[in-house]
Design a protein around this nucleic acid. Structure first.
Length: 109
DNA sequence: TTTATGGCTGTCA
DNA sequence: ATGACAGCCATAA
């Protein structure tokens, strides 16, 4: 079987509290893979549907749901976030400054 | 093995 | 503010 460094990523994503979001880059950094935001995207893409990882709480640096291969999933992600109390503007983006998850007292700024 | 994408990001126009 | 480019690295073919 293949090495699953993805566990690293999943562990980080699992720590994102409800009603909070993180960017791919942020997750990558917290997982010890700074600069490899893309790999985070792949890791989440490979995530099974019965997983307990809140993949929907991960957004791109623009504070919006990223465009991906399968169309229905974007809407699903947004719906899940709205269900957690996160509001999007007319552009489909949210205020990262307000919803960004901060792992510890330290500020990422 | 090489080549082509890709759930991204930061910089520049 | 948006749009185009380049860089990073893993997975798929």
């Amino acid at each position: 079987m293949a090495h699953r460094n993805y566990e690293r990523i999943y562990a980080v994503v699992r720590r994102i509290p409800r009603g909070r979001v993180a960017t791919y880059g942020q997750v990558a950094t917290l997982a010890g893979m700074a600069g490899q935001a893309r790999q985070v995207g792949y890791a989440l893409h490979a995530l099974p549907h019965d997983s307990d990882v809140p993949w929907h709480r991960v957004l791109n640096a623009r504070g919006a749901v990223s465009r991906r291969a399968e169309p229905g999933t974007e809407a699903l992600q947004r719906a899940l976030l709205e269900k957690e109390g996160i509001r999007f503007d007319q552009r489909g983006r949210l205020d990262l400054a307000a919803y960004r998850w901060v792992p510890r007292r330290g500020r990422s700024r």
